[in-house]
Design a protein around this nucleic acid. Structure first.
Lengths: 358, 358
DNA sequence: AGGCTTCATGAAAGCGCTATCATTCAAGAT
DNA sequence: ATCTTGAATGATAGCGCTTTCATGAAGCCT
């Protein structure tokens, strides 16, 4: 609590407040300094930076010269306060420590950077309260738009978002009241299950992420369940294992399923990482994939095509989600569109980890 | 270029500018509104938010009541402008789309969030100019601290950083002029190579990332080269393959090395992903790992322990790097320390992907 | 040539908050 | 009783920029 001296400049009151005091070594040049140097008004300098086409080529050049000479760099905060725009987009994801979200954010970041926007990220580790807090902080902090993952969230968070009046885009799973860039997660589960069913598998297990506050995994599970039920197959609780979203989780889930009295002949991983973990676990037990056990994933992460056997999976266009989120948000900010709904196609990619049931 | 109406409120001039106009439905409550409602001065409200212990319990309560009643949320931009602090830390990484950096950022983000700071991220995709640009944007945007990866950067970027006077912490590789949280990448390469040499391998190849603007990979390669030379071994150019930092790159690099007239009996991956790719490539060619080919990685990513054979690798405490970067930056911001240098220990983790040379 | 645009610029009012300094009042010191 | 002192609060000047609105100087038309 002991902060007397402003961290910015030695002493704002000791140097003469305005005019060129002989040796005032002001650390940062301000807009007015440039204006004075160039012999124009502050307004002109402001315009030179933001709307150059409003000025004579000559004044523009003069301003630019002065700016360069003084090493002027505009102050984002002041600009934000005066204009109401922060040139910052917030993104709240479950975690950065996941190929999926990291990849989407990377794509989003690139797309935003091209338009001069920055990405402010927060994560909530699958904790609704933490998400609410993140929403609050980012809104307070000031963002021109906000990207969120999934449609499910706390009342408080929803209210904050509504009252803030900031453009929001939902990703992976959406709601109609809000712009959204989605994929059909239920279809993903459905495709995966149908593929196994089509290969003659009758006993199918799943390894999924913890379901609370994860509507992506919920939908994928629901889709698989639906496909099974359509085929007249049962999905007892024992054949569904909830695990933390790591490869170790995949191995553990697979182990649980294989240790069952009547183990499945096909397993669906709610994410590719699970599926890859399943393959490793099976192989380490001497169970051949796909001969003795078929494994399907969902996501199609980078690695899936490169492991042995290459993973059959449902491709989710992760990077495109991020990229389109950025575009959607920017469009909404510019007022070009409202509550745009983009549904991205997904498809089954058959590789070597699945085979007909014996 | 056509933005007439302020996006914030319907018309700042139509509502009476200051006092309680009867039905002025101002969208956002300001600090002065709270002050008026609570019957105190703006300064008191400000203090109520920032230094509650300076106020009577009674006034504090009154202010809080009014704030809640009006749904007041402070404006971060105004606060930043007035105080000079943004409560934001910038991080510039090569890419988010990498387990390593994503993991470090996740740890950093968590640590920062605990202290009320937000993470502003940018990436440069291994492009020095892009990094410079990112530095410029983040500094302009206003950050209280900045995390960068590696010590190598453009003159321009270095100058910007110096002149900005913002606390900076370097990660993975550092320089003495600047706070840094580092690991000894050269040692990492050295450990990996020495391990293979100790197992009797005489012909050792490497798959490394593209070296320009990547001092981590440079150092790892240098360390391996040093170990080899200490053992009287040669490292011809043909045995070093530069690849993009993906698993596919690892496979490709491995393929190149194995296709050599005299292929290596041991391969070091500059990152685990390469090593894993190497294992896959070898296995897909019917070359047994570790019996016919030993593979070592560097990083010890999550997955490395779970593949078959489990990867022998040099453990880099990625998450801790992020976490300590956050701590270092916060300490520097508070003025507690300056240019602190933290070197994190690394160690060889022997698993199943390496075996004595035949 | 006079009036009407259009264009380039200037003047100045904030944006919403923090921080400094001044003020008040009550309690302890003399 | 008078003087200090300190704690709680108020008044207010900016922070550095954007953005109307106003102004003067050309350009254009009839």
């Amino acid at each position: 609590m002991s902060k007397q001296t402003s961290p910015k400049q030695t002493s704002p009151k000791q140097t003469s407040p305005k005019q060129t005091s002989p040796m005032s070594k002001r650390v940062k040049a301000r807009l007015v300094d440039v204006a004075r140097d160039a012999g124009v008004s502050p307004a002109t300098v402001s315009r030179a930076m933001a709307q150059p086409d409003l000025l004579t080529a000559e004044t523009l050049a003069r301003v630019h010269d002065s700016a360069r000479k003084l090493g002027y760099r505009p102050d984002g905060m002041a600009r934000a306060l005066a204009s109401g725009r922060t040139m910052t987009i917030g993104a709240i994801v479950p975690t950065l420590d996941s190929t999926i979200f990291a990849r989407a954010l990377q794509a989003m970041q690139s797309a935003l950077a091209r338009e001069g926007y920055q990405l402010l990220v927060a994560s909530h580790e699958m904790n609704p309260a933490a998400e609410t807090e993140a929403v609050r902080t980012l809104l307070t902090r000031g963002v021109d738009g906000l990207m969120l993952v999934g449609a499910e969230r706390s009342q408080d968070a929803a209210m904050l978002l509504r009252s803030a009046g900031v453009p929001v885009v939902l990703s992976w799973v959406g709601t109609p009241e809000c712009a959204a860039v989605t994929v059909d997660n239920e279809l993903a589960g459905h495709l995966a299950a149908r593929h196994l069913i089509g290969l003659g598998h009758r006993r199918i297990g799943l390894v999924v992420g913890h379901l609370p506050f994860n509507d992506r995994q919920q939908a994928r599970l629901a889709g698989a369940r639906k496909a099974l039920s359509e085929a007249g197959l049962d999905l007892p609780g024992a054949l569904v294992s909830e695990q933390g979203l790591t490869m170790a989780g995949g191995r553990a889930g697979c182990a649980r399923l294989l240790d069952l009295g009547e183990p499945p002949s096909g397993i669906i991983g709610g994410i590719d990482l699970f599926a890859i973990g399943c393959i490793q676990e099976a192989q380490s037990r001497g169970i051949a994939v796909p001969e003795a056990l078929s494994v399907v994933g969902i996501d199609d992460i980078d690695m899936s095509a490169h492991i042995a056997p290459a993973l059959t999976t449902v491709m989710i266009p992760t990077a495109r989600i991020g990229q389109i989120c950025a575009a959607t948000l920017l469009a909404e900010i510019k007022g070009e569109r409202r509550h745009e709904q983009v549904a991205l196609p997904i498809e089954l990619v058959v590789r070597q980890s699945t085979a007909p049931a014996r």
